[in-house]
Nucleic acid binder design. Sequence first.
DNA 1: GTGTCGTCCTTTTTT
DNA 2: AGGACGACAC
Length: 800
Amino acid sequence: MIDQLNPEQKAAVTLPPQHALVLAGAGSGKTRVLTTRMAWLIQTGQASPYGLLAVTFTNKSAREMLARLSALLPLDTRGMWVGTFHGLCNRLLRAHHRDANLPQTFQILDTADQLSAIKRLIKGAGIDDEKYPPRDVQRFINGAKEEGLRPDVVPANDPHHRRLVEIYSMYQAQCEREGVVDFPELLLRAYELLQRNGPVREHYQRRFRHILVDEFQDTNTLQYKWLRLLAGGGACVFAVGDDDQSIYAFRGANVGNMSEFERDYAHGAVIRLEQNYRSHGHILDAANALIAHNSARLGKNLWTAQGEGEPVRVIEQPSDLMEAQWVVDEIKALINDGSLRHEIAVLYRSNAQSRVIEHTLFSSGVPYKVYGGLRFFERQEIKHALAYLRLMDNPHDDTSWLRVVNFPTRGIGARTLEQLADLARERGTSLYGAVPYMSGKGGSNLAKFAELIAGMAHEAQILSLPELIEHVIHHSGLRAHYQAEKEGAERLENLQELINAATVFCVEENIEGLPAGLLIERALSTAAVSNVSGAGIPASQTSGSQAFDSQTSDSQTPDSQELGSQAVLGTAAALPEVELAMSPLAAFLSHASLEAGDNQAQPGQDAVQLMTVHAAKGLEFDSVFITGLEEGLFPHENSLLEAAGLEEERRLMYVAITRARERLYLTLSQSRMLHGQTRYAMRSRFLDEIPEQHLKWLSPREASTLPSEAWGQANWRRSDAYGRPPTGGIAPRAPRSVTSGVTVGDKHFRIGQSVSHAKFGEGIIIGLSGAGQDSQAQIQFRDVGTKTLALGVAKLEINP
DNA sequence: GTGTCGTCCTTTTTT
DNA sequence: AGGACGACAC
């Protein structure tokens, strides 16, 4: 198992029980080390499979971890706590829903559901949505939750923030009332459960002796606190990550957690995995040189035993169209030479860039696949069907209610729903709860809808999950609706696919044929706890006051799939713990929320792979094209506002480069259609941060890069136009000519042009967009920073 | 209740 | 440019 590991990998895998931070560079065998560590702990008897907790960010990597683990050891991985942060927290909350003060059937709002819940709240409370845009409110609430902050402790020092906190508080009350939980709430609730409930906390602290974390650099503050709490009983934390690949700060990830770890888990080991098994020398050296420009690093230098390989190709084209055409021509040549299509990836910084590449690939007849679109469970028709299913489980879920109460249309208009909402507010009930108080035609239509839901809920006690979904699609009228619609064929197919997904789900969960609404309890042995610590906690304590409804207790077929764990551990006196007490329907709904469907690239498809750089993280390809290497695009202009932004962009570029095994192409364009305007930009500073010896320019350099060789490479690399050294930040560098520009009146403006402004003084044009009177220029002034000026308005002098 | 027109926005994204 | 969403009219 460990024979094929290099010394550092082996050291990490066989570390004695203690905390460890593994700094695993790109392509250094990170996942392999993590899974082998788990297998080694189990095989050497240091841990039982049920005494391990392994946590990741995506379902895909959780699945991969389990798959690799079962390949290493003959092991029944079911019942093991390996999953995403959200998945594991969901599991925890289901098992202890009473202690967590949640209804048994609590449902999970995905990002879109949450947004619509917030919109509804804002409308209902008469809050000005201009002043408090739902998106901002959502960001505020989630940001607070991800810091572990409830409304009563969120700092708010101005009226605007105090109002936001109020809205947060109202939103929270609404979620409680409706029995729904958003994504960050899953984590926060689970954290609070462990924090406040001593028996539950101690139970899990004793149980999990080893906690393994993947992609540790992506953890947010709350996840870090959650891990610390869980490890508080003396568990060993094995955290694997790469600070250089931290690219999710914008959604709350805190790279600082890595240095925090070194402080909080003192005496832990720090192991660096620096041998890269993926990329050829030039590619790796380019990545190393680039990332060396970042200041806040834990430090790491990747090396490879493979040869230098090919230099990195760089090409500049006059337009984005020609850039795309060049990429496609090169792809065709690669395929001609025997490359596999799915071993070729085209990466870009932002999704908007994919269009022109897609178009060009399409015209050339090259099969391709774009990643990052709408996912299966996010499709309109699927969300509609799921809303019906949710209502069966919990008719008080107003979000789902409003989604389908009039879809397909059944004569329930806005007016009626307003009345219903008023009644519900007066009586403090859900919309469903207010239906009996409605009168008139609207009222009877609503009553019919309520009956429809109740009837479906009744069927749930009889039909299996796939049968139930079939029933719902038919009796809700969804099928008829989409059959009548011109473009409905694909939606009908997706609905059919939903039934298939449910069938597969039931097989995987071993609940085929059971009524969808039947509550199933599964006991999971707590033997792992007793085994290690010698002391378990009585189930009556751990599962708190969970006296399950009488209908659920006796009438069940006890699920015995976990019995195997007892055999493995040889402990007969296992204390039963309620692992899950939910129906196939509820389980499927959780599954749908937590796993919205595959969006990530899968190998094996014979198509060129198109995706953003973010989406490419964790993947690798023989040949990689990184496109749009222009200032303002990559690094993205929005990132330049904060100092940390540029470093994150650089890490992003680092991730992009290290995706390539054998061939790497960097492409850029002098002009680009963006937001309906032609924009001109300078080449990305990242190109200048890669040493010349690793690059091979395919376009004539004089066309783009240097006004003349007289500047001298060393010269412009070391100083900007004003002779200041490039100290990072956004200092301009030497101007260089481009073939095109913008003409306004009698003046022609080009990138790199030196200009003077009466008020701002002397500056250099670093970006141009638009044409004629409407065009704008980004100008880096010597004294007052970067400004964007309308060329038709600003009086600019062109300096000689 | 449905269709059409205007307005707005546009970095990256998992759960 | 292009898509998404909301307001307004039939």
